[in-house]
Design a protein around this nucleic acid. Structure first.
Length: 159
DNA sequence: GCCAACGTTGGC
DNA sequence: GCCAACGTTGGC
């Protein structure tokens, strides 16, 4: 199956691009997703090797901070079973887990990061889901064209 | 199955 | 920090 592309949002106060870079093996589980559509993307559609933009939301400035790669198959999000976690879900069980995630591994940092304003001003990105008003989905598909255009903005080779 | 109430997201 | 837009819950 062809490689696909994604955008995943995180509030940098909770987990940032630099947190990912500082993680063991520059790899982290993308935990805490509690939206079915976003879960379905991770559980059913993502494949190891897919390319992912790391988007910083609910901060200033709003940016794409860089890229990462899907680096595991989907597996149950462990935080759903942890009563001490804010992501605990009493309605989930180990026999029938409700929430799934993938691991992501750092691939490149955009320096400087690509701002939302730049994205909005760039021809070819008008249809990007993240730029649409009211777009709350925290994991979104990205087209190959968008992947390439944004790498050009960042002065990077799309890989 | 509907839909009002509620909690959360996220740009501004 | 505000608040509109959105997704989920739960009473009926």
């Amino acid at each position: 199956m062809a490689r696909r592309y994604w955008l995943m949002k995180s509030e940098p106060d909770a987990f940032s691009m630099d947190d990912l870079i500082a993680s063991d093996q520059q790899t982290a589980p993308w935990d805490g997703v509690r939206n079915y559509q976003a879960r379905n993307f991770m559980r059913d559609e993502m494949k190891p090797g897919d390319g992912v933009f790391f988007y910083h939301s609910r901060t200033q400035p709003l940016v794409i901070a860089g890229t990462m790669e899907v680096s595991s198959k989907p597996y149950p999000d462990p935080t759903q079973f942890d009563p001490d976690s804010k992501y605990f879900d009493a309605k989930s069980s180990k026999e029938q887990p409700r929430w799934f995630l993938v691991d992501v591994t750092f691939t490149a940092k955009f320096e400087p990061p690509i701002t939302r304003d730049q994205l909005k001003q760039t021809p070819g990105l008008e249809d990007m889901m993240v730029l649409q008003k009211g777009s709350r989905l925290s994991i979104q598909p990205v087209t190959e064209q968008e992947w390439i255009i944004i790498h050009q903005l960042a002065g990077k080779d799309p890989k």
